[in-house]
Design a protein around this nucleic acid. Sequence first.
DNA 1: ATCTCTTATGAGAACAATTCTTATTTAAGA
DNA 2: TCTTAAATAAGAATTGTTCTCATAAGAGAT
Lengths: 142, 142
Amino acid sequence: MNVSIDIIKEKLSECGLKITPQRIAILEAIYVLNNHPTADNIITYIRKTHPNIATGTVYKVLDTLVDSKLIKKIKTEKDIMRYDGILDQHHHLFSSESDRIEDYSDDKLDKLLEEYFKRKKIPGFKVEEIKLQINGKFLKSK
Amino acid sequence: MNVSIDIIKEKLSECGLKITPQRIAILEAIYVLNNHPTADNIITYIRKTHPNIATGTVYKVLDTLVDSKLIKKIKTEKDIMRYDGILDQHHHLFSSESDRIEDYSDDKLDKLLEEYFKRKKIPGFKVEEIKLQINGKFLKSK
DNA sequence: ATCTCTTATGAGAACAATTCTTATTTAAGA
DNA sequence: TCTTAAATAAGAATTGTTCTCATAAGAGAT
Ligand SMILES: [Mn+2]
Ligand SMILES: [Mn+2]
Ligand SMILES: [Zn+2]
Ligand SMILES: [Zn+2]
């Protein structure tokens, strides 16, 4: 991902959020780190340039960004939250061997699912979003 | 769900696990509580009849049951693990307003996905399991 | 039924991720 | 520049979970 500081500022103010160095750093970290970082990944990253951002602030900002829909939380089986800066509809590949999570975009599949659920209603439930959780193994080499 | 103690014992020994009152109580609780209980839900439930099962034991047993594939963990956006005693392939409906999680089984959909991924290979990844995470709102009542 | 051995459990301390509290600082509009 | 509401730093507190270790209890062998 490649998002300039200016774009980040713009995103923040579009959401009616005050523009602070902490928020910029954290949102930028999520974009740079890309692969679904944990709060700790983000802290480690931003401390290199902003050594005095407090841990609590990072968690607070992450919450704010989630509430403002600038980022998303990812459901995992571990006691660690992970964050996603990519907002376009996509699914996730979860490694059954490691903590690796990769994006998987597939318009054709999304169409297929949309079609399917256009007919097949789920009684008593209003679908807002469908995400595939694809579990498996990544083959050799990164 | 309606599983007798005898069936539970059978399941345990099939997995080569010692049959203990704690394991029976916990597995039964998961079946009775049904809707994807937390460790705490399970503790509250079993304490009614087994007031002295230790908290640590419950977590230990849950781990064991997951390892033995008698139950499954459910990925959520919260810092609380949830467990599922239903092993047949099924998906989950996640409430965007509450912590409610309901099962959703759909053979036709599973067929469709299987078909789809028979052709469409994901490069560098070996799919083991595909689950839909269906987010939305439950409509009134229940 | 008893013995033996291994495994499971209870109690409570420890831990890691996250949240909360409070004094201080800062962004942004007036 | 002034004002004010909102954000942050620091560190304590909480929560869900894991760990440690002494004791208890399954289960196969006798
Ligand atoms: Mn935790
Ligand atoms: Mn926690
Ligand atoms: Zn993603
Ligand atoms: Zn389920």
